[in-house]
Amino acid sequence: MQEKTSRFRAVDALLILMIVLPILFGIVLQIATKPPSEGIAISGARIFFTIPFFFQDIPITESQVNSWIVVVALLGLCLYLTHGIATKTKTRRQHFAEMIVEKVTNMVRGNMGEYFTGFGPFIAAILGLSAFSSLMTLVGLYPPTSDINVVAGWAILVFILITYYKLKGGILHYMKSYCEPVPLFAPMNLVSEIATPVSMAFRHYGNVLSGTVISTLVAAALQGISAMTLGWFWGQIPFLQIGIPAVLSLYFDLFSGCLQAFIFAMLTMLYVSGGFPAEQYEKRRLRRSQKKAS
């Protein structure tokens, strides 16, 4: 085993702080700035301040702040997992890091083929960011994925990637793919092309938001029921809220959050590798190399 020096331990502690501190910061910010709730309120992210900017102001909201919290925590997690990585020592965190890398690489290779093996970090980024964003509800923070802007940004990035890989088969081939059965279908194809990122964004956003909405409604309903059934004194304390929302949270936050992250990553892989015209790309590359040779 590697000699664990005090320096090593100090860096470890620092990295763990780097993971924990942002989350604590988010919780403190939430407690400090959240106004007392007034009944049933389903609203978007709270705006901390607005930066005036051309075309449209930039509101710095909870979703942005929580996204940055996730980014910093993930950076800390990555540094922690790979800290003291070595060929001979076998620590638990190293096993974990290896497992993540191998699982994601195998998944990407299995779903996208050899050509897209470099997509591993991107898919892992989508999985990590999406899952951890959704899981923020477990510590009582606003999940950034229930903001349409956040998910739309990811979907647009995926759309850019899809189009980029479609263009690898040549612009003419790309244009031709819109007039697939007959040129009359071009508008339909265009709509379905644009529907891809829109549906991806709305799917993720809708799932997380529906969880929030149903959780809020159930909590409010339980409060009402307990107020009605338990009389004027005991009804003030919402006893029925104790156990039931936890089950809902288990489904909506843990299961649905992770599942949506997985589905977003899966759809990204399928769309990008499905849109890539492998034969056309091969033909084009062959022609180009021939031209270069001649």
Binding site: F202, R203, G206, N207, L209, V213, L259, F262, M266, L267
Partner: peptide, 23 residues
């Protein structure tokens, strides 16, 4: 299971569109 979850996610899309409209 993986394929089923994928299919479910895609099939859910219309329901989520409805949800968005309702919201």
């Amino acid at each position: 299971t993986t394929t089923m979850l994928m299919g479910c996610a895609v099939a859910e899309t219309t329901g989520l569109y409805a949800l968005v409209i309702a919201i």
